[in-house]
Design a protein around this nucleic acid. Structure first.
Length: 265
DNA sequence: ACTTTAATAT
DNA sequence: TATATTAAAG
């Protein structure tokens, strides 16, 4: 059932700033520094929480001289927990790609626009690769019969039409939301790593000021979703509040990063 | 240096 | 299965 092109737009917009939708979103991926910091208290009580020895690496946050002498930086080689692409995170991904236009939507740029702390270029690249395959298989088989059933994630976000038709203009000039005033929207973001946030925001000022404004708005919209309700688990340890960072040690010592609570549709 | 694609690993 | 990692090529 193909609706008009003008409809996806409206649908998409409706999805955006619903209060209910905003609440469950959390901050960002755990930052390695924080993880390390909190791991310092080893509550070694046998509470079924075997600490991950996989101390998430610190990408580059140390303000030390960046004398990158390979072989001396074990942090670089340590493994991060697997990223879990929740529908919310995927939506950010799609928004970013749509906003950039297919042309500029390369992993690095996408990553920058998403501005999710801890998200790596490779995370995005991997996801992008899979997403493109999904798009390809969408244009061929399409809506009729055989949709793969393993595409739940991708199906959870609407696919902008120009993703499928390389023709016609892309880029995002069309749908900068006229609402969403970036100022005064900002309540106090209860973000412990506000420094990081700041850093990421300031990292967006590339290219011309026009684009910068454009992307500032984009970011502003995105960040309105990032505003944290400051959910304070009264008696819980800091682990849970730092981020939605869950470890799946049930089966093995594998750790899993969860950005947002997954809510079933 | 970065992207893309395919193949492979966990 | 979903994501990561690697290799090769542009």
């Amino acid at each position: 059932m193909r609706e008009e092109d003008s409809n996806w737009f409206a649908k998409w917009e409706e999805e955006l700033p619903s209060p209910e939708e905003l609440i469950p979103l959390s901050q960002a991926l755990i930052t390695p520094d924080l993880a390390i910091a909190f791991d310092l208290h080893r509550d070694n009580s046998n509470s079924g929480q075997p600490l991950p020895q996989t101390t998430p690496p610190q990408p580059n946050s140390s303000t030390e001289f960046a004398g990158d002498s390979p072989g001396d930086e074990p942090a670089r080689t340590l493994k991060r927990p697997r990223l879990v692409w929740t529908p919310q995170l995927h939506k950010r991904f799609v928004d970013a790609v749509a906003h950039l236009g297919i042309k500029n939507a390369v992993p690095k740029t996408i990553m920058q626009l998403m501005s999710v702390d801890g998200l790596t270029r490779e995370n995005v690249a991997s996801h992008l690769q899979k997403y493109r395959l999904y798009l390809k298989r969408m244009q061929s088989g399409g809506g009729g019969g055989g949709g793969g059933d393993s595409d739940h994630l991708f199906a959870s976000s609407p696919v902008p039409p120009h993703f499928l038709h390389p023709t016609s203009r892309q880029s995002s000039d069309l749908f900068i939301p006229s609402f969403v005033p970036i100022s005064t929207q900002q309540q106090h973001i209860a973000a412990p790593p506000s420094q990081f946030l700041h850093r990421q925001i300031s990292a967006v000022n590339f290219t011309s000021p026009t684009k910068a404004t454009d992307q500032a708005m984009f970011l502003a919209r995105q960040q309105s979703q990032l505003q944290q309700p400051v959910f304070r688990p009264s008696s819980l340890h800091l682990h849970s509040q730092v981020a939605n960072y869950t470890q799946d040690l049930d089966s093995e010592a594998k750790t899993v990063l969860t950005l947002f609570p997954t809510r079933d549709d």
